[in-house]
């Protein structure tokens, strides 16, 4: 079970790290939404190039990015392969036994894959270059509804606490001979384990709530944050927004 470590490179120095988190969020989100709207393969490739360029500028190691692409790859690669063989348009360009690939199919499969990878790679300059607690505060300053941001904040905080708890429970199970093989027993044991986690979490939730009450909680969850927007922050945002627009109108 892995701890989230998306912001482990937040301490590096780069123009993207120095960028005001609010401007950065807005601009790169703009770019992500622009990339997914692209319908032309060449433009999508340009989008992918921009994404990779931003990662390079941010100095985030590329192998860190690649390590995080498994989830998307598991989804996108099979999907593109199915499209490649099932969507027929234009000239036939290859044939394997009873499967044919057409130029239209190749182009469409590539378009989907390139858009998907461009979008997911853009998450890194956006999220990995700031500490996640700061990202959450930036979201709040951007007027994302405060209740939602608070939920994200508490959930994020307790993910770490509960991962430890689950690891302790799993260790205890293993020491009592639980092997986790592929059988019904494993599923039943897992169900009980999660049930136990849930019962303990409810108790913890109650204790946390008491701790909040005892420090005067009445529903107010302000935090103090200092963000400063400089001209260069806006300039960087303007450049990326211009690219985002260009990707879809040119």
């Amino acid at each position: 079970m892995e701890y989230p470590q998306i912001d482990r490179y937040a301490g590096l120095a780069s123009p993207i790290h120095r960028w005001d988190p609010r401007a950065k969020l807005v601009a790169i989100l703009g770019l992500i939404f622009s990339v997914v709207l692209i319908t032309d393969l060449k433009m999508a490739m340009v989008g992918l190039a921009v994404a990779i360029l931003l990662v390079l500028v941010s100095r985030i190691p590329f192998r860190f990015v690649l390590g995080h692409l498994a989830g998307v790859s598991f989804f996108i690669l099979p999907l593109s392969v199915i499209i490649l063989f099932s969507y027929h348009q234009g000239d036939e360009i290859a044939r394997f036994a009873f499967l044919t690939v057409t130029s239209g199919g190749l182009e469409h499969a590539s378009l989907i894959a390139v858009r998907a990878f461009a979008a997911v790679i853009l998450i890194f300059p956006m999220i990995s270059t700031v500490r996640f607690d700061v990202t959450m505060k930036a979201l709040e300053r951007l007027r994302v509804p405060v209740r939602l941001v608070r939920m994200i904040m508490f959930t994020y905080r307790y993910i770490f606490v509960l991962i430890e708890e689950v690891q302790r429970m799993l260790r205890a199970l293993t020491s009592r001979g639980f092997t986790g093989g592929m059988n019904i027993r494993t599923l039943i044991t897992t169900g009980k384990l999660i049930g136990m986690l849930f019962v303990r979490t409810l108790e913890r939730a109650e204790r946390v709530y008491r701790a909040m009450l005892s420090r005067g909680y009445e529903g107010n969850l302000q935090t103090l944050v200092e963000f400063k927007m400089r001209k260069t922050d806006l300039l960087k945002a303007a450049v990326l927004i211009a690219i985002a627009v260009a990707l879809n109108v040119l």
């Binding site: 008491r210 909040m212 909680y217 935090t223």
Partner: peptide
């Protein structure tokens, strides 16, 4: 159970803010 905010500062400031 008591440190529920994202950072140490946020936590120590929680009471005074309330």
């Amino acid at each position: 159970d008591q440190l529920f905010m994202p950072t140490v500062f946020d936590d120590v400031a929680f009471g005074p803010i309330n």
